[in-house]
Amino acid sequence: MSSTDTQTDDSGHFGQSVDDTGGALQDAVSPVDETTAAGAPKTSDGGADDGRGMGHLDPAHEHGPTDGQYFTVFWILLGLTVLEVSTYWWPDWFGDTDAVRYVATTVLFALMFIKFVMIAGIFMHLKFDPKILRRVFIFGVLFALAIYLIALSSMNFWTDSGIPWFNDPPPEIVTTTVPEGG
């Protein structure tokens, strides 16, 4: 029983509101808002309202992963972790060059992301739960990522973290020739 899934992302997309009135004098109750036969008033809030009075919750729950599927997911994760750990020995196997190091780092981050998504998606049931949970968690993760990346870059972490230190020579000044008359 799918509810009218009018998704209004409750974190900011405020375009479609129930009593969005154009003309100055149009009164409050806009024609849009009628109560659908299914008993649940057609709501345009964060789409999270489908559970409202829908009888028992999350119809999707019956067919959560079976134990067998969890085992396969576990083996995949184990395999990925072994692969990750192996990158420690790559410099010995493929030569200790920068290229190997960059490839190893990108592989590591990729595997990390995959494991992250797998555990969150399957073990933590994010794939099967209502979308609002997914939105809350992903919002938190991306939020943390964005803020700390900005903070690190403004602490010139990426350029060279060789911060001009006590007895380092001070960085040379970008000297542009100021025209004599200036």
Binding site: I173, T177, V178
Partner: peptide
């Protein structure tokens, strides 16, 4: 604000 003339004097 940041740029200075080439012959600027440096003072610590």
């Amino acid at each position: 604000m940041e740029d200075a003339s080439a012959d600027a004097i440096e003072v610590e």
